[in-house]
């Protein structure tokens, strides 16, 4: 049956409904009447015309919106994970820089100091919430659960389509803003890692294990001091610097620079 034939049949059927069932109710109140009129008109459309028939793209839009919501939620999690990682790296960087400063007698190289020092408090997720003036119209409502039936009580496919399209737009922009925040965090993370790697390299050059940090350096210094004290006592007996270096395991140059200490009795 062609569409027009079907439509014609439905019009006649709709008219019958309208006259037999709807008309007698007119007069109760205007609102009710209009509702029935609407229903009657709705019945004029062929029965097979669902929302999906009018907008075949609807299921796809729904899927797309659902996927974007999941993505948004995942990106939020990723943001918090990245923020925590940066905080841990900052602590590690501080620890190493302190350790380095101690052994080198000068500050550690901090090539990215300026950018690292920026506080990480601009949480984009909560920032969106703070800007409620802007979002009162419901940016975030698009991120919430399924679309409320309340909005579509007139069952307009167009309304759902427009809503979904708006939701997809907003979610896409939200995801973009969280992703950009994550990128910034990752940038900071990479800079911190580079700073840490540089300090670690300097420490290795000094023959120290960065993993042990300042503790290792404290021990190393105390150990060397003990060896130097022993070396000084041995030098006072007239032993050659080379022999003293061999016995104490110190670098000959260090031994040569030591003053011979008068041995205590």
């Amino acid at each position: 049956m062609s569409f027009f034939k079907k439509l014609g049949r439905n019009i006649s059927k709709g008219t019958r409904t309208f006259t037999k069932k709807t008309l007698p109710k007119v007069g109760k109140n205007v609102g009710e009447t209009l509702k029935h009129v609407g229903q009657g008109l709705g019945n004029l459309l062929p029965k097979s015309q669902t929302r999906e028939d009018r907008f075949p793209e609807l299921p796809g839009l729904r899927d797309q919106a659902a996927t974007l919501k999941d993505t948004y939620s995942q990106e939020c999690q990723a943001y918090f994970a990245a923020a925590a990682e940066v905080q841990m790296l900052r602590a590690e960087d501080d620890r190493l820089a302190g350790a380095y400063a101690k052994v080198a007698g000068r500050a550690a190289p901090r090539p990215f100091q300026d950018s690292i020092d920026v506080e990480i408090e601009d949480n984009p997720v909560l920032k969106v919430l703070k800007d409620t003036g802007k979002t009162a119209e419901g940016v975030l409502s698009f991120v919430s659960f399924g679309i409320s039936g309340a909005i579509f009580d007139r069952k307009e496919a167009l309304a759902e389509k427009e809503h979904l399209e708006g939701q997809i737009r907003e979610l896409t922009s939200l995801i973009a803003s969280v992703r950009s925040a994550i990128r910034q965090l990752h940038d900071r993370r990479d800079r911190l890692k580079a700073a840490i790697a540089e300090t670690e390299a300097k420490m290795r050059e000094a023959g120290l294990d960065p993993a042990d940090g300042s503790s290792a350096m404290t021990v190393h210094e105390a150990e060397q001091a003990a060896r130097r004290a022993t070396a000084a006592r041995m030098l006072s007996t007239g032993m050659t610097a080379e022999m003293v270096a061999n016995f104490t395991g110190l670098d000959p140059e260090i031994v040569a620079g030591l003053p011979a200490e008068a041995a205590a009795s």
Partner: peptide, 30 residues
């Protein structure tokens, strides 16, 4: 590091924002 609480809050605030968008007591209640 998990930040799960923040995400749960973002979701619920989203629902509430939706209510404000309705501007109609009956719809809000529904």
């Amino acid at each position: 590091a998990a930040g799960k609480a923040a995400v749960a809050l973002v979701i619920v605030i989203g629902v509430i924002e939706m209510l404000l968008r309705m501007r109609d007591a009956k719809k809000i209640n529904d």
